[in-house]
């Protein structure tokens, strides 16, 4: 550890992030409530709550389909949603670079308020810090949220079981594509907007429509590491294998074009408004029907199933009908050209 330094891969949500958490943070913070899930489920005076926190450092702060303000609410709301918790209260902390335009900050705050209202969550406290020029890139936001656990829902990354269906709530890789395009690092243009959205309203509808609450086993929002990273996490935490049908994975043509040019895999591009769901096959149709009645879940589809083996691995049934493994996440997203 003496010589090691933090690299971008440590923040990319893949294996290096997991290692950093396990070898460093978890070692120091070890306690029974520390969670590997999107939010911790806690008991406070007999009331079950979910609690989580998330930092946002997206650059540029505004991108097609959203901005960092909206994102900072969505990320935390979606983490609570994945635990089957109704998001209630949020706090936010701003780290702002000296020189950042006030009107941009106003736009960010307005967007946060609007997004919070849309999912019935209240922003109850905040903190403001200003850092010297160059110490922060524009504006960074951290939000912390508390939600109220629904009585009949119990989800977790370790609860997926063989036989489950694997669903995704819409086409993949939009947010990562929108950011890549907005940064204009590679001179590519495409009409792709971020999928950034608060998913509580969508899931509230699904929870209500669910014939049996315990049939929904795992929910996780596919953020920075994309759907592929989330599937590997769940395969590992649940000790199961996941088998996807390559042709069933929804991906917009422009996202395919972009990833084709850069040699990237859309399964590893970030989403900010997509959940991966694992449920008993008996309720798949009901879940999909409920999702299709919502705006955010209109493109929901079944992409695969869970098997007992090979545990911890995600495989794909290819267009040739053969089976291959999805390459595990490697961290920093690097274009493959030569």
């Amino acid at each position: 550890m003496d010589q090691e330094r933090i690299t971008l891969a440590h923040g990319a949500g893949g294996q290096k992030t997991a290692e950093l958490i396990e070898r460093l943070f978890a070692r120091h913070f070890q306690n029974p409530d520390l969670t590997a899930d999107d939010a911790a489920v806690l008991s406070l005076g007999g009331t079950k709550i979910a609690m989580t926190t998330d930092g946002f450092i997206v650059s540029p702060w505004r991108f097609p389909g959203g901005n960092i303000g909206e994102l900072s609410i969505c990320g935390t709301v979606n983490d609570l949603t994945c635990m089957g918790a109704r998001p209630r209260y949020l706090t936010c902390a701003f780290q702002i670079e000296e020189g950042f335009p006030l009107r941009d900050l106003d736009a960010i705050a307005a967007s946060m308020a609007e997004t919070a209202r849309a999912c019935g969550v209240t922003i109850v406290a905040g903190d403001t810090k200003v850092a010297g020029r160059g110490q922060v890139d524009g504006c960074f936001i951290t939000t912390t949220g508390i939600g109220e656990l629904l009585p009949n829902i119990r989800t977790g990354g370790a609860l997926a079981r063989p036989g489950d269906d694997v669903l995704v709530t819409g086409d993949i890789g939009r947010h990562g594509s929108a950011i890549l395009l907005a940064r204009d690092s590679y001179g590519i243009e495409a009409e792709v907007t971020s999928d950034c959205a608060p998913l509580w309203p969508m899931m509230e509808h699904v929870f209500a429509a669910l014939p049996q609450g315990d049939a929904l086993h795992t929910l996780r929002d596919a953020t920075r590491g994309g759907v592929g990273t989330v599937l590997y996490e769940i395969a590992r935490e649940s000790g199961v294998g996941i088998e996807l049908r390559a042709e069933a994975i929804p991906c917009a043509p422009a996202v395919q074009g972009l990833t084709g040019l850069l040699g990237l895999n859309p399964l590893y591009l970030a989403c900010e408004g997509r959940l991966v769901l694992f449920c008993a096959p008996a309720v798949t149709d009901a879940v999909l029907a409920a999702l299709h009645e919502t705006r955010e879940g209109a493109g929901a589809t079944r992409i695969g199933t869970v098997s007992a083996a090979p545990a911890g691995r995600v495989s794909l049934i290819t267009e040739l009908g053969t089976r291959t493994l999805l390459p595990p996440p490697t961290g920093e997203l690097l274009p493959r050209i030569c």
């Binding site: 690092s185 040019l261 030569c338």
Partner: peptide, 30 residues
């Protein structure tokens, strides 16, 4: 550099390591 080279280990670290120590490394498409 092309993204392909960023993680390749040299005798004392990769370009990603060099970047974390302050080297300027730009990934380009062409």
């Amino acid at each position: 550099t092309f993204g392909d080279l960023v993680r390749v280990p040299g005798s004392s670290g990769s370009l990603a390591d060099a970047r974390s120590r302050g080297a300027r490394v730009q990934v380009v498409y062409t």
